[in-house]
Every structure is written in C-alpha cells, then in structure tokens.
Design a protein around this nucleic acid. Structure first.
Lengths: 128, 128
DNA sequence: ATTACCAGTTACCTAAAGGTTATTAGGCAA
DNA sequence: TTGCCTAATAACCTTTAGGTAACTGGTAAT
C-alpha cells in the first residue's frame, strides 16, 4: 500500500516562511533574552540612572544590569553620558534607534496583558 | 556642597512603567526563548508535521523540537492530532490562541528585517 | 566614626537551554 | 536482508544566562 505523502508546502510559502523566520531570529538575537527590552522600556519612561533602573526593573542584579547596558551601548540602542561635574553623574540615554522597537513593545505589552487575563480566568474556572 | 538629586520619576509614569514591564515579562515567559515563536510561524504556514518543522526551522534538533511542541501543547497554542489510519500520521495544528500572536510576529518580523538592513549598511560603510 | 548612596566590578556558582548520539518501533523500498 | 523514513525518547554533555555575594572608591549625611 502506498504511503500517504506529506503534501508538500508550496515554494512561495516556504520562502516567505524562511524570510519571516530569519527576521524573527535576527530580532531575537538583538533584543531577545530576559532583560534588554525591559531596560529599554524603563529608560523610555525616564529611568536613566543605574540605580533607578535597578529599582524599576524588578529582579535584575547589578552584575546583569551592568553587562546588559554595555551590550545595549555596543549595539547602538543607548549611550552612556558621564557628566564630569561635581559630583560625577552617569546617565544612560536612549538613542533614536531604540524607538524603532516601539511597535514590538506595544504588541508584546498588549499580548502579555491579554495572556495574563486568560491564565487568570483559566485558573479560576479549574475544578481540581 | 549639595548632591545633585535624581529628579524623581513621577508616580503615574512609574506605575505605567511597571504595568508594561509586567506584561512584557509575562509575554517573554510564555513565548520567549529561541524557538516557540519560530515554530508557531512555521506552523501558520502549513508545516504541520514533525519532520517538516525540523526542515523549516533551521537549526532545531529533534530533542528540542519535541520538547517545545509539548510545551506549546500544554500552554494551549497547538494540539497534536494522531491519525491512527495506515500509516499512522501525526499532525500538529495551531489552535486559535496562536493567532493572537499575529501582531507580535508582524512587529518582530518588520523590526528584524529593518535591523538586518541596518547592520548590513553599517558593515559595508566600515573602514577597518 | 559610622552608615548609606552611587555605579559599578570580580569571582564564583547554579540552572536552564540546547546539542549530540544512539535507540526505539512499524513499515516500506531495493 | 539491509537500510531508510517518521516521530520521537534517553542518556549524556556543553554552553550560556543569570544569580549571589563581596568588594571598591568616591561622596554625603548623621
């Protein structure tokens, strides 16, 4: 008897799929991980000092915050401004490139809120 | 001499910030990581079999694909359909809930494409 | 003098993610 | 009969992300 064939996915679909997959993969590479987006979100809302960020971004440690800020700087999302006045103050500022992430942040925020609602209503309707 | 004060970020801003941060954090928890979104993207384009997914989602191993599919099933993004005909075929299908991720996927795709362009043009204009 | 704030750095450690290879079991094709 | 396909699973190992805690060196407040 003949084997059922996988109906082959057509070529254009496969190519479009690969394109989307590569793009998302690139995005995850640049701003994936637990903290990068969160730091950018906090900075967009006026948290520009190291200690402010540590307070606002719950759960992040100094070590991780420090290394994430360095990466974000290297990748052109933020700059570090050292004001050599008295006393020395250090501020991180978003560069315009960070704002290109706005749609991503909005979409994830909306989805996250909606998702939490869903989880909550599932839990409350459970009979266990 | 007096210390320069951090200008305190106002309360509403801080609260809105926390809300966004929590939402994004929830979203990252559910569909963060290297593979979950990618699998959903590939499935949305007609890749419903294990081996199709392995081919389409470049770089994923059988072990990881298998465990990600299980998690996606547990979290209500997909279902596993076992067709006990001859031969047995196994298909994964997206559940409607997966489609709520559409905006997130679109936003990330657009950003990823744009980001790759940026990186490319930066590399080509480098004098090193 | 002691304590605390700021902006980190360093060393060490754990947990999670992910990779590699081998194996399973049913059936097919050469 | 040997080998391949599908859809995995198991054992094992490596890598990376992230956490913990201690410390620095300057300033400022009590």
């Amino acid at each position: 008897m003949e084997r059922t064939k996988e109906q082959p996915v057509n070529k254009e679909f496969t190519e479009e799929c690969t394109k989307v997959l590569n793009a998302v993969s690139d995005a995850l590479y640049a701003v994936g991980g637990k903290w990068k987006l969160m730091i950018i979100i906090a900075m967009a809302r006026g948290n520009n000092r190291f200690s402010e960020l540590q307070r606002q971004v719950k759960g992040i440690s100094a070590r991780v915050l420090s290394s994430e800020l360095k990466e974000l700087e290297m990748n052109g999302f933020i700059i570090k401004k050292v004001d050599v006045g008295y006393p020395v103050t250090i501020e991180y500022q978003l560069l315009p490139y960070s704002h290109t992430l706005e749609k991503v942040v909005t979409a994830m925020t909306e989805w996250g809120i909606q998702h939490r609602e869903k989880i909550k209503s599932e839990r409350s309707s459970k009979t266990s």
